[in-house]
Design a protein around this nucleic acid. Structure first.
Lengths: 187, 187
DNA sequence: ACCTGAACACCGTTCAAGT
DNA sequence: ACCTGAACACCGTTCAAGT
């Protein structure tokens, strides 16, 4: 615990920001409530007055990381390109915060509806049946989760291509199957 | 720690088996080296003489769970049906051992080559290009990993269908895209 | 009213001391 | 030679005592 003078005006945001900084440096595994409080110049009790426990802290960190890396769909934008960009964006943020994947994935699953609607729109418009579209949504979500959770850079097809283009190719493949030719553009 | 008389002839297999029993009852989170040793009727030091640390224990547990649920491809069997069966088999074992997914996924990724070869064979034979086949393999692996790691029963399309048929539908979808009609049977 | 930090009940891991 | 379990250096969490 580094030197720290007592400190008032500690906010929950300060705590979460500092936690994310420490996670970037040492991973989630290396984060302790004592060390965190020390870096904030606050006491252990002061930190616990803002958060009921460590798990709640990590949940909030996950939410913040997701919010930072997630851009909502612009009107008129191609939902498939948008989705591809979002997955890679989340992927990059997670690569910098070891151990946070499972906390961020939770928010991705929460955002599943936000994702599903525009994507299903395009799929239906390009020839998928409604039943198929649901399956495609599931495959997309779980593929994304798998890519984010497995640290697959080290384990899947390391020599073939860089991870980003592999993820991009995977998403493109999943979306490329359609009843009437290739999926492109909006409805 | 329950009553336990001192014990000789402690084997690594005994330790791993007992660890898996305790994990089945209370999850990985609830497993401690002290409690494990107590249930084995052994001392903490005795347990550590068989394993360098807790992580090594969990790695071995993951390997054992994988071996238990994995059946190699029979000669003459349809690789795609086999793969589908294997994914569901691993899924079921993991549902019984909370928190072990990440340890078992490691072995699935190790087995990726064993999976990839026969599956790619079928895909190539049914019209995929070699390049596409690599992508399909990646999608399959990451989809599977995602399904196993996210506890998706609770978060994805809960109302639509049971998890098993969703996984099955996902795998079927991924494999259904081919250059010349539906993928079926062996080459 | 707010904050502190010692105290509690645990961890994983080690290793001097016993047999 | 093998085993034990107290000891060490940590945890997350609480709450009496201070200001």
């Amino acid at each position: 615990v580094p030197a720290g003078r007592p400190r008032a005006n500690l906010s929950t945001d300060d705590i979460v920001d500092m936690a994310l900084t420490l996670i970037r440096e040492r991973g989630v595994e290396g984060l302790s409530m004592r060390q965190l409080s020390g870096h904030l110049g606050a006491s252990l009790g002061a930190t616990y007055r803002h958060l009921p426990n460590k798990d709640a802290l990590l949940e909030q960190c996950g939410r913040v990381l997701f919010a930072r890396s997630w851009r909502p769909l612009d009107e008129g934008e191609n939902p498939l390109e948008w989705l591809q960009e979002q997955v890679l964006s989340v992927y990059r943020v997670l690569a910098l915060h070891r151990g946070m994947a499972s906390y961020v994935v939770h928010h991705i699953q929460t955002a599943a509806q936000e994702i599903a609607e525009p994507v299903l729109g395009v799929l239906l418009a390009s020839g998928f049946s409604e039943e198929e579209a649901v399956v495609v949504g599931t495959v997309l979500t779980l593929f994304t989760a798998g890519a984010l959770l497995t640290d697959f850079e080290r384990t899947v097809a390391v020599d073939t291509a860089d991870p980003q283009s592999l993820v991009a190719a995977g998403i493109a493949f999943i979306l490329s199957r359609s009843g009437k030719g290739t999926v492109e553009g909006r409805p």
